[in-house]
Amino acid sequence: MAFQDQVSIQFMGKTYRVSKDSTLMGALLETGWESARELGCLGGCCGTCAALYRLPDETHVRTGLACRIPVREGISFSLVGCYPCPEPVYDLTTIDDPKQALFDLFPEITGCHKCGLCVTACPQDIDVMRGMWCAVFGDYVSVADHFKHCVQCGLCARACRAGLRPIWVAAYARRVLERGQEPLVGGQEPSG
């Protein structure tokens, strides 16, 4: 490939030259890098390839999905991998008071300082902070709406100084919400 069709990128401190029309993940594959982790749908749907990156003309670190961020000259990045954000275990069928259960399952949720770092961290443009406060106040309809496009990458949890786990709060709120509604048809086993 011609030199002018390439850019220099820095991955985990090492410099590579890659084609200029690539994404961070595409560029990594092009270098011969291999992994079974940090690599998923390659289409921005699965949240596996959460990345931290810094542009040459900026002084702050941005967050995003490596499969969706275009490379550019001088970009520096690393992959986050799976951020420590354990999921609580619950049985939806035995939860009588979903609002109380939220605080039992996620006791840290009241610790939000409203710093807003989670909002800037989200690659899906979700207002994570507002979503968390909607959950605190039991407005699960709004939580569900806010987190419709959540890919559960965990970048919000990484940004949170109070240790909130927004991706699992959202998953819980969405599921509890649907359970609260009457089913449209009667329950049956599969036919045949």
Partner: peptide, 8 residues
């Protein structure tokens, strides 16, 4: 309906 009950 099964999916809906699970919370989809």
């Amino acid at each position: 309906e099964w999916l809906e009950r699970l919370g989809v």
